[in-house]
């Protein structure tokens, strides 16, 4: 496969065990995650499937509660104790050093700890809260470096300083000795990126990394992330609720709604010809300079509680094009509507 084309998706062969595709970095196949709660088992992720090729960025889009963060936390095995991953879920992860189904690894196993942080790194929405306030930036960076790269203290410090310099932090030798509260918000997010990338991971999961930043800083951080992805030949999963951000950084998109991927495909195709009514709704909600006189139209209604999951297509109660008697009875089929472009909707069946 040509590295510049977006990742192809693997359909689940009917009735058989899904086969890992050796050219993909990450294959999430039929991931189901539930949480034990006082009201019983609540399904947060309900059969998510997508793949990611080496060196590309996948945008994971959806409203709060759509299961974006739970999906990536499952990939990192960072789910809380009350989470239950369905045993049929598959999380194939392949690099030069690793070939594993993450779903079968114990969260605290040596192998999982090697992957977590070493092969897959993660950055979070709030750069201030992701650093511990009582240790220096350097202390926390060197901790990650020494865990995964087996170098001495002095060398780890050198790597940390180089990484801080690489993400555009001025005077890195000083910053490495400073505490998180001594850095500005944008600088902290850069430091967090430097920390995550200092172990040279094959995959970076970015969980709304720019939401807490102002617009100018946001643009700079997005540019930096894209540049680092190319330089380090690393893949990225970029979680956001902002379609505009997706267009800037991602080569492929998966749109999530209530624990399911409702549409996925190459970014260009998905934005130009959205198929799922929910994707259309999300795109209409973005302000556009060439249509200033039109009112923005938000997606009507609220995302239902996962405890009262609608029958059939999860989106049908909010869908303007709902087919009565069909959409509310059976789950929609997955339909291929273009190269690598899939939509779960009865309208195209």
């Amino acid at each position: 496969m040509d590295a510049t084309t977006p990742p192809a998706s693997v359909e689940r062969p009917p009735g058989g065990e899904p086969e890992p595709a050796p050219d993909q970095l990450l294959q999430v196949i039929d991931l189901k995650v539930s949480f034990r709660s006082d009201e019983g088992l609540v399904r947060a992720v309900d059969g998510v499937t997508f793949d990611l090729a080496q060196g590309l960025t996948l945008g994971l889009v959806g409203e709060s509660g759509s299961g974006k963060s739970v999906t990536t936390k499952a990939v990192m095995q960072l789910l809380p104790n009350n989470a239950v991953v369905d045993p049929a879920s598959r999380l194939y992860f392949r690099t030069e050093r690793t070939a594993a189904d993450i779903a079968t690894l114990a969260p605290r196993s040596r192998e999982m700890r090697r992957i977590r942080g070493g092969e897959i790194a993660m950055i979070f929405q709030e750069p201030m809260a992701s650093f511990s306030p009582v240790y220096t930036i350097g202390n926390q960076m060197m901790e990650a470096i020494r865990l995964h790269r087996h170098v001495g203290k002095a060398e780890a410090r050198e790597i940390a300083v180089d990484m801080l310099d690489r993400v555009g932090i001025a005077n890195p030798a000083l910053r490495v000795r400073q505490y998180p509260h001594e850095l500005s918000g944008g600088m902290r997010q850069r430091a967090m990126i430097a920390l995550a990338l200092s172990t040279r991971p094959a995959l970076l999961i970015a969980d709304e990394p720019t939401t807490a930043l102002d617009v100018t800083t946001q643009a700079q951080v997005l540019e930096l992330l894209d540049e680092l992805r190319r330089d380090f030949a690393m893949a990225m999963i970029f979680i956001t609720h902002d379609m505009g951000v997706i267009a800037q950084v991602a080569q492929a998109v998966a749109v999530m709604y209530l624990g399911r991927v409702v549409e996925r495909g190459p970014t260009r195709a998905l934005i130009d010809t959205p198929h799922h009514p929910y994707t259309e709704g999300l795109l209409r909600a973005i302000p556009r300079l060439d249509r200033l006189d039109e009112r923005l139209s938000p997606v009507g209604g609220d995302i239902p509680s996962p405890m009262e999951r609608p029958t059939g297509c999860p989106f049908h109660p909010r869908c303007a094009r709902m087919i009565a008697g069909t959409c509310d009875t059976a789950p929609p089929p997955s339909v291929k509507v273009g190269p690598d472009h899939h939509v779960d909707c009865f309208l195209y069946a």
Partner: peptide, 9 residues
């Protein structure tokens, strides 16, 4: 969580 994501025991 961030420290756990670094793979710390």
């Amino acid at each position: 969580t961030a420290a756990r994501a670094r793979g710390l025991p």
